[in-house]
């Protein structure tokens, strides 16, 4: 197990290098001049040249790349071209809201989607199954911002139950935190709930036909016990995969959700950085999200081993 872990971590290094190089080239080979953005409306060509020189943007590309890589190796994510703030500290400022949003949304997904999927599988072919299945298709067929606006209109503007925007840290109290995060988390979770519910249903159906389930039923175990203790436990692996691989889905959702609900998170940071051509921030952010992606995949694979003893490495 440990050897496998080490091997996987080592294998991630070339992947991250590919990401770094790719992102770097993508940014630097496309038009866009941070100096023109910094200089503003009236900057003369000499002023722009001076800014470029100052930022090191006039150096050859490969030099810029290796300088960046060298800094990275020393744990230095360099600083924003615009705000002169360290990239890492900018990310640190934005980490909590995004993390909160993603975790609450994931929790919500598991809490809502898994029981729904189990129910649908259990009552396969019933109106319940059909409702769950058709509503879930809608879940990932409606753009996340339309869902966001819909929920806002209903719960915030019509019913006045929840606020329209904003974020409160959980350290300011669980109440205010939950009050602010409920709508965004639900918005973000919607597509995910749909996917996970369907996956749970399908995966459970696979299992429900197996002999040991019949045995369990024959033994006179209650339906709930059969479903959750026996069936779900064995159907867990594909469900976990969907939850984990939903990370990519979450990222795109986070970017949009943070805009709709004005949550100062990483999604907005990166959109702003792209629009401002703030290269170090974009590079740092993409590297970070890719790292998290690799890590999550690793964790999922590890958890397979734990949740399903049949899988060996």
């Amino acid at each position: 197990m440990f050897a496998y872990f080490v091997r996987r971590v080592l294998a991630a290094i070339p992947v991250m290098l590919v990401v770094a190089l790719f992102v770097f080239l993508l940014l630097r080979l496309s038009p866009g001049d941070p100096a023109a953005i910094i200089g503003g409306d009236m900057a003369s060509p000499e002023q722009l040249a001076a800014i470029r020189q100052n930022l090191g943007l006039d150096r050859p590309l490969h030099v810029q790349f290796f300088v960046w890589l060298w800094q990275l190796l020393h744990g230095d994510f360099s600083t924003s071209l615009m705000a002169h703030t360290g990239v890492l500290s900018m990310i640190g400022q934005r980490l909590e809201p995004t993390l909160s949003l993603a975790l609450v949304a994931t929790a919500l997904t598991v809490l809502v989607a898994v029981p729904l999927g189990v129910l649908a599988a259990w009552r396969r072919g019933s109106w319940l199954d059909h409702t769950v299945m058709s509503v879930s298709v809608l879940g990932f067929s409606v753009p996340v911002f339309v869902i966001g606006y819909g929920l806002t209109t209903l719960f915030a503007l019509q019913l006045h139950w929840l606020p329209v925007q904003g974020f409160k840290s959980i350290f300011d109290g669980v109440g205010p935190f939950a009050y602010r995060i409920a709508l965004p988390a639900l918005t973000l979770a919607s597509a995910h709930i749909a996917l996970v519910a369907r996956m749970t249903r399908a995966s459970l159906l696979d299992v429900l036909g197996e002999d040991y389930i019949r045995t369990a039923r024959a033994k006179g175990l209650g339906e709930l016990a059969v479903l959750f203790r026996h069936a779900l436990r064995n159907a867990w692996v594909p469900i976990l995969t969907v939850i984990g691989s939903g990370f990519a889905l979450m990222i795109s959702g986070v970017v949009v959700t943070e805009s709709v609900f004005n949550i100062p998170g990483l999604g907005r940071l990166i959109v702003d950085a792209v629009l401002a051509r703030d290269y170090p921030v974009i590079q740092g952010m993409i590297l970070l999200t890719s790292g998290v992606y690799v890590l999550i995949n690793l964790l999922i694979d590890m958890s397979y081993a734990i949740s399903d003893p049949r899988i060996r490495y």
Binding site: M16, V18, V19, F22, S252, V255, V271, V274, I286, T289
Partner: peptide
């Protein structure tokens, strides 16, 4: 590597 970059960020 390509897959590790969140698609939407890449697209933006």
């Amino acid at each position: 590597g390509l897959m590790a970059v969140p698609g939407i960020l890449l697209a933006i």
